[in-house]
Simulated scan of single mutants.
Amino acid sequence: MSASDNKRAVTVGIFVILGIAILVVGILVLGGQQKRFTKNIQVTATFDDVAGLKVGNNVWFSGVKIGTVRTLRFIGNSQVEVGMNIEEKSAHFIRKDAKATISSEGFIGNKLVMLVGGTTRFPTVEDGDKLQTEAALSADQIMETLQENNVNLLKVTTDFTTLMNRIKQGKGTVGAILMDSVLADNVRATVANLQRTSNNAAQVSGSLNQYAAKLNNKGSLANELVTDTIIMARLRTSANSLQQASSTAVSMANNLEQTSEKVSRKIDNPNSPLGVLISDEATARNLKGTLRNLESSTQKLDENMEALQHNFLLRGFFKKRAKEEAKEQEKNRTRPATQTAVQQNVDTTGVQK
């Protein structure tokens, strides 16, 4: 065999070995994707519509591929039973109350079976279990829903266009506000008034904060009025006293009013003594005559007393009485001087001497 033949044989052998290696790697990769070389359990689920699901499509749980579709077969009344290979290591996370639904890889991707739900109250799935199913929206149903949404959106857009045209024409309250310049000026004035009111409210709030800060200053009158219970008790007592004084004044005013009414009635009554004294002229003249007679009688009495004092029979009596009155006056003059001296002595020494 020549060297060229040997070289050709080696090249062919290398290509054959590479081909075999690629074949083995492909088998391993495809087997790994199809879960052919892992330990699986088989579960089933029955659907009314599989929406184009094929054998070999993936089975997902919580977004993770855990198996593949093994078989598809019709049962009953146009229902399809889907057999699935589930990894045994992933089956520990799937509960018997989990549900299977048909989904897709993206909006137009391959169909797949998705397992959802499941609670810890139920045990994990086992080989041969049958899972419950949940109907999913098909692409046609989704497109129908989108079509309805498009029709509704078109109606909303049309209504909005009509509303904007009415607003531009100045119709309605909003159109009047936007198109009427006088109303717009009134709105601006109202907004300005609201702004001023807000500023005034802010100033009032600041004043209240300052007053509250003064209330917290110990020793101030406001703080004492708020916190000192003694002052509050005295203020209550003073208020009660003022209330009592006010009640007394009201009572006195009522009594005076009643007395005034009684006096007025007596004055108006010509038969009463007060009415006679005030309104009867004859009685007034008699009273004046009586007073004149009393005055003249008093003068005559003084004259008679003076005549008695000069009478020799009573002269001794009047002289004796005059001496006694002089002595009494002398005692009254000396008594204040003695009391003043005693008081001065007590103030100087602290003991009466």
Rank of each mutant, 00 (worst) to 15 (best):
G32C: 03
L112D: 09
I86C: 02
S78C: 00
G32L: 05
E81I: 03
H92S: 04
Q42M: 14
D127S: 13
V80S: 13
W60L: 11
H92M: 08
G56A: 02
I86V: 03
L53T: 13
K39T: 12
S138H: 01
K54Y: 05
V55Q: 15
S104K: 04
L137Q: 08
A45S: 11
K54R: 09
D129H: 15
Q79S: 12
K96Q: 15
T44C: 11
L112W: 07
S62F: 05
G67H: 01
G106M: 07
N40E: 14
E134K: 00
K96E: 11
V125N: 08
I86S: 01
V64Q: 04
S62K: 14
G63S: 09
K65C: 01
N40Q: 11
E105D: 09
M84S: 07
F61E: 06
V125M: 10
T44G: 13
T133M: 02
V55A: 14
I102T: 12
S78W: 05
D48M: 08
E134W: 00
T71M: 01
P123E: 10
W60G: 05
A91E: 02
V82L: 00
T119M: 12
A51I: 06
I86M: 02
I75R: 11
D129P: 12
A135L: 05
N40D: 12
S62I: 07
D127Q: 11
G83T: 13
N85G: 03
A135N: 10
K130R: 14
R70I: 00
N85K: 03
M84Y: 06
S138E: 04
L53P: 12
T119Y: 10
G56Q: 06
V80R: 13
Q132D: 14
T68E: 04
N58A: 14
I66R: 01
G52P: 08
T101K: 08
T71K: 00
L115M: 10
G118P: 04
F47D: 14
D97T: 09
G106E: 12
N85S: 07
V125R: 03
A139N: 06
N58M: 08
F93N: 10
V59H: 03
K99N: 10
K89T: 14
D129Y: 13
L115Q: 09
S138R: 02
R36L: 15
D129S: 11
A51Y: 15
T38W: 00
G118Y: 07
V125T: 08
L131R: 12
Q34V: 02
T44D: 15
V69L: 02
A100F: 10
N57F: 09
V125W: 09
I66H: 02
F37I: 04
N110D: 04
D129C: 12
L131S: 10
D97H: 12
G128T: 12
F61Q: 07
R95A: 09
S103A: 14
K96S: 11
T119V: 12
Q34L: 14
T71P: 00
N77A: 13
A51W: 12
I66M: 01
Q34Y: 09
T68C: 01
I86H: 00
Q79G: 10
L72P: 09
K130T: 15
R73L: 06
S90V: 04
E134G: 00
F47V: 14
A136S: 14
M84H: 04
T119D: 13
G83A: 08
E87C: 07
R73Y: 12
A98P: 00
R121P: 00
F93Y: 06
N77V: 13
F74H: 06
I75H: 04
I66C: 03
V64R: 04
N58C: 05
K89Q: 13
I94G: 03
S104T: 07
